[in-house]
Nucleic acid binder design. Structure first.
Length: 589
RNA sequence: GGUCCCGUGGUGAAGCCUGGAGUUCACGCCGCCCUGUCAAGGCGGAGGUCGCGAGUUCAAAUCUCGUCGGGACCGCCA
């Protein structure tokens, strides 16, 4: 990657050059640069250094007196580029071999002292940052992130265009659909009492586009979901949304891999990148998660057979698994107790820990309940050595996976910028993730997902057997973050009706909720499949950020507020009247 | 809906556990000095309702309860 200014375009207007562009080749030129005063160093009445900053970087200007200039003033400086005298070069600066001398300084605007420093060395209160986001945006970190995000978007658009995808915009004001997350709703003025919903994703529209013969659709789509915020979740987010006809899972994975690879290359060509494929079952068995972080080991090891006929009551369970924590024998009793608490909070009945002293010797509160054979087999299966810690959970299979999967992350997960970029395609997700109160299966992805061809016969099953049906749904995972998901869609009415039947959705209800899609499918829907992944999360990971707020220009706080604009805010009575709305504030109980 | 952490001059922290005068550190700000600095340096100065409200106490930044704001997480996120 070149200097940041490489992306800044030709200098126009008040500037002849970007600050960060000036090099030894420019010596002797008369230039005009514009920007903000990053720093000012006065050395008496007739010598001062002004570091001028713009998006591209910083250039040092030598000024005859700078007493009228303050930090963050907006200046235009015209002068001559000169090689810096011997011994005064600054290797920390891209422009450190040169400086601008004989400066004419124009103050384009003054500035009050900022509410917090532009320096990145200090963490500033989140509210302050967001209230003065325009100040925050001047800081190198967000400048870098905004440019990085723009480059990623451009790379993705390039890759999709090259692969023959057509960018199609879909509406923001749509009908609310009952499935999925909570909708943001917008009241209708022309139909008082009725509401639009903001899209959670363009799901239905992209499938309609397939019926419409678009064949390969994509969009960098804005999506809204009214669910509680997290480090990796905002109300509003951006997805690369795509759908293609007459192709299956393999082609979709290729299309997305191409786009993601280009995005990665534009940011961090030097970081090791791998894509691997793993079934959902293997991910759960080995990593206790459907979004495995494969940058480190500590995989789950099956121990059920070892304790098949154990006398230790706690291990008489449908599933026993363990993990090995290398060097973990050093953990204090306090730390081990904390791990046990954590396991219980996650739903386990308990957590068994054992410090490994040798191939057949462990130190553990429950050592006396185990046979020598059980101890030896456990140590061997886990490949544990002296000084390691073994953690074992026994319960039903989903619980064991869940608890050990979480402990594994607690104990071994590398930092966000470490361990390279390990992409994993997780395939063969279950069609249903469980049963609801009435015994109907709950779709794991969405109700238009095609079952796995080998499992079609199981659609006649009932109850818990249904949850073993695999689907043609797949996720893309990067370093343990779920980037996105997709599936091969059902394109035939008979199959769709069968699934609706299983879900307990009757013909009338299906027609009411998804009628327009079912109608469309009567008029020649091609086989199709698609995917969507979160641009915010991908960008954050590529830029080494742990929170997607850092790659969003104007994000919201965890409580969904925007300290900059004051949103959300009450509206005028007249607006309510026009919309036929009356506000009833919930009474505190 | 729940759990945990944080809130101290403009910024970031320490002080809180173990109550005793708004105490400290760094940065910034203002003034003066300074002709090769680059996180410049030297001297001096200003600046705080310790988020807010109750309670305990002779006495609260410090202990208790509540509340507001921020953050992390669980639930939630087809």
């Amino acid at each position: 990657m070149n200097t940041p200014s490489h992306f800044a375009g030709a200098p126009r207007g008040l500037r002849s050059d970007w600050c960060g562009d000036l090099r030894i080749d420019d010596v002797g030129r008369t230039v005009s640069v514009t920007g903000w005063v990053a720093r000012r160093r006065e050395h008496g009445e007739h010598l001062a250094f002004v570091d001028l900053r713009d998006r591209s970087g910083i250039i040092q200007c030598v000024v005859d007196g700078a007493h009228e200039v303050r930090t963050e003033y907006v200046l235009r400086i015209t002068g001559t580029v000169r090689e810096r005298p011997d011994g005064t070069r600054n290797t920390e600066l891209e422009t450190g071999a040169v400086e601008i001398v004989d400066c004419d300084v124009e103050v384009l605007n003054t500035a009050e002292p900022l509410p917090f420093p532009i320096d990145d060395r200090r963490d500033v209160d989140e509210t302050l940052r967001l209230r003065h986001r325009y100040v925050d945006l001047r800081r190198a970190r967000l400048q870098r992130n905004l440019v990085g995000r723009a480059r990623i978007n451009a790379a993705i658009r390039g890759a999709m265009d090259r692969q023959g995808f057509v960018e199609v915009e879909t509406p923001m004001l749509i009908a609310s659909t009952p499935e999925g997350a909570r909708d943001f709703v917008v009241p209708s003025r022309l139909s008082p009492g009725s509401f639009y919903a903001l899209p959670q994703s363009p799901q239905l529209f992209k499938q309609l586009a397939m019926v419409g013969g678009v064949d390969r659709y994509y969009q960098i789509a804005r999506c809204m979901r009214d669910e509680d915020l997290r480090a990796d979740r905002q109300f509003e987010f951006s997805q690369l949304d795509l759908e293609a006809s007459f192709v299956g899972q393999a082609e979709i994975l290729d299309f997305v891999t191409e786009a993601v690879s280009d995005a990665v290359a534009t940011i961090s060509g030097d970081r090791p990148v791998t894509f691997e494929t793993m079934t959902w079952y293997d991910a759960q068995e080995r990593f206790g998660s459907d979004k495995p972080d494969v940058r480190f080991g500590v995989e789950l090891t099956e121990l059920t057979e070892v304790f098949a006929s154990t006398d230790f009551n706690a291990f008489k369970a449908p599933c026993v698994k363990g993990i090995r924590v290398p060097g973990g024998a050093e953990l204090t009793r306090n730390r081990l107790d904390a791990l046990t608490d954590r396991a219980k909070k996650l739903g386990a009945k308990g957590l068994v820990w054992a410090k490994v002293d040798g191939p057949t010797a462990i130190t553990s509160p429950i050592a006396k309940f185990l046979t020598d054979r059980e101890v030896a087999d456990t140590v061997e299966m886990l490949g544990a050595e002296s000084g390691d810690l073994i953690l074992i959970v026994a319960d039903d299979r989903p619980m064991v996976r869940r608890v050990l999967g979480a402990l594994r992350l607690d104990l071994g997960r590398p930092g966000v910028g470490d361990g390279g970029l390990r992409f994993v395609w997780v395939t063969e997700f279950p069609l249903f993730e469980g049963l609801d109160e009435s015994g109907n299966p709950i779709p794991a992805h969405h109700p238009f997902t095609m079952p796995h061809p080998d499992d079609i016969g199981l659609l006649d099953a009932t109850g818990d057997e249904l949850t073993s049906i695999r689907s043609q749904a797949y996720d893309l995972v990067l370093n343990g973050w779920e980037l996105g998901s997709g599936s091969v869609r059902i394109h035939r009415r008979d199959t769709q009706q069968r699934i609706f039947g299983l879900l307990g959705i009757g013909a009338d209800e299906a027609q009411e909720k998804f009628g327009f899609l079912l109608d469309a499918f009567r008029f020649g829907a091609p086989p199709h499949a698609g995917f969507a992944f979160g641009i915010d999360r991908l960008t954050a990971l590529l830029l080494g950020e742990e929170n997607i707020r850092e790659v969003i220009a104007y994000p919201k706080t965890q409580s969904g507020a925007d300290p900059l604009t004051g949103a959300p805010s009450p509206i005028e009575a007249g607006q309510l009247t026009e919309l036929g709305l009356r506000v009833v504030v919930p009474q505190p109980r």
